[in-house]
């Protein structure tokens, strides 16, 4: 299997070259946010207040890591199910978000926003939090510390493994993969 190496912030060219089903290794800075952090981020946007980080070209990773042991960067850090963030994702894309990492299906609204704002949805492997943690080189809470595991973190990642689920051309790996293998089990 070929891997595409990509770095953040994602450029237009990088995004345009990604296709549904591509396995990628992501390096650079990414940001974490889950349910409550998303609610707060979109509230800031609604009130015309600055976000805790520059979202332009960036990737948000849907994760609530387990606590780091002393001397470690992070605990276990695999993706959480993305549909809970569907309500908030389009407005973040409108403000520059270019990538999301999570697991599970997205709503039609999110998928059309991805086409409109040229953003990509990556699937990471749920339940592979120990493996994924190996690609996380630093972690810093930058907002909402009181949310514990749900705080917003700035992560530095090196070769973070993921797969392109939704590209900017309307491709959807969940639909295509299922169609391809439906009825094939013997």
């Amino acid at each position: 299997m070929e891997f595409k190496k990509i770095t953040t912030p994602l450029s237009e060219d990088t995004i345009a070259a990604l296709r549904t089903g591509d396995e990628v290794l992501i390096s650079g800075t990414i940001y974490t946010a889950r349910d409550e952090a998303h609610r707060r981020l979109t509230l800031l946007i609604a009130e015309n207040m600055p976000l805790p980080f520059n979202i332009e070209g960036q990737i948000i990773y849907y994760v609530g890591p387990s606590p780091a042991k002393p001397g470690e960067v992070i605990g276990s850090a695999g993706p959480t199910t993305s549909y809970r963030m569907d309500k908030y994702a389009p407005v973040l894309m409108e403000h520059g978000l270019k990538g999301m990492i999570g697991k599970g299906k997205r709503s039609e609204e999110v998928k059309s926003a991805m086409k409109k704002y040229k953003a990509v949805y990556f699937g990471a492997i749920g339940g592979a939090g120990a493996l994924i943690a190996k690609s996380i080189k630093s972690s810093k809470v930058i907002a909402y510390e009181e949310l514990l595991s749900e705080a917003v973190r700035e992560l530095t990642v090196e070769d973070f493994p993921a797969i392109v689920v939704n590209d900017i051309f309307g491709g959807d790996l969940y639909n295509e993969g299922k169609l391809k293998f439906a009825g094939k089990f013997k």
């Binding site: 890591p65 749920g126 339940g127 939090g129 120990a130 943690a133 595991s149 391809k180």
Partner: peptide, 29 residues
């Protein structure tokens, strides 16, 4: 029989090895 399916299964098995040897949670949840 799916390539990406196999790739995922291999990573899940690898994850179990890492979790055990490093005493790290298999999953953050």
């Amino acid at each position: 029989i799916s390539e990406s399916g196999k790739s995922v299964l291999n990573k899940i098995i690898k994850n179990a090895e890492i979790a055990k040897s490093e005493d790290r949670p298999l999953c953050q949840d």
